[in-house]
Write a protein that binds this DNA or RNA. Structure first.
Lengths: 144, 144
DNA sequence: TATTGTTATACTCTATAACTATA
DNA sequence: TATAGTTATAGAGTATAACAATA
């Protein structure tokens, strides 16, 4: 009986535990900056797309519902880290762009996030990390 | 400017998206059985430890707070999938054990979960999967 | 008609503190 | 005093539906 693999070998279960562990420590590290993993992600994308990103596109990349992005952008905007600009080409869009302060805060946040990532993956040989990331990418973005 | 790696290369971010994708489809697949990822995990551990597991130990493995385990075991017990037995050696403990029905439901659930896992990792060469699992284990259970 | 952003709502998950009974 | 289980509660995350403005 029970000749099957234990729960602790299940990839979904391991993904969930690993993801939770990293997210917890990252959110804790970002606490002093008033950010969490999700708002950090949105800010990161805004900084990447310096000229402005559509909220719909933010939602697609971060994997959230557009309605959740509204709240996160509201929050970042209230703190003066991003701003919503009009899109001359399509007036339905609100282009999200980082402020100067947003770029500063992100730089610091990015440092903290990297620090936590490194801590969690310290036991993993660097040469295996790229393969790991590659598998993760395929599962996270099946289409691409 | 922005010479840094994009968010989509960040391991924590990828973990979160991958974990979310798998958890969503697994919970959906388990729907007809009245289970979700978390109750499935608890049931799986109960089936593995046929003679009974302490709720504290369940909480430690699944990575939940003991108070959350209470609710999950309540739910499984109400559905007749597990039962709580007294521990003769330590009367503080409530040993969680699967019922016959619990084992049956788990067998079916396990099949469905494996099906989803396979689907998500179909694009990954099998020989790379064990290495992937190994990294995941180290991040999920840093001590072990 | 289809799409972007938005509001509202409900449900699940997570985190904490406090209490009880046993050890 | 320490540990297992329990209850209660609040906060964060997730999922859906509906609506206005614009295309």
């Amino acid at each position: 009986m029970s000749s099957e693999r234990p729960l602790t070998d299940d990839l979904g279960f391991l993904l969930s535990r690993a993801s939770g562990a990293v997210a917890r420590s990252v959110s804790a590290a970002l606490g002093p900056l008033g950010l969490r993993v999700r708002s950090y992600s949105v800010l990161a994308l805004a900084v990447e797309h310096d000229t402005g990103v559509t909220q719909r596109s933010l939602a697609a990349v971060v994997g959230l519902d557009p309605s959740q992005v509204v709240a996160l952008v509201d929050e970042l905007q209230d703190r003066g880290l991003v701003e919503r600009a009009a899109d001359p080409n399509d007036r339905r869009n609100r282009l999200v762009r980082p402020t100067a302060e947003g770029r500063r805060v992100f730089a610091e946040a990015h440092r903290l996030v990297t620090e936590q990532d490194d801590r969690h993956f310290a036991q993993v040989p660097p040469e295996r990390l790229e393969a790991f990331r590659d598998v993760l990418r395929r599962v996270a973005f099946p289409g691409a």
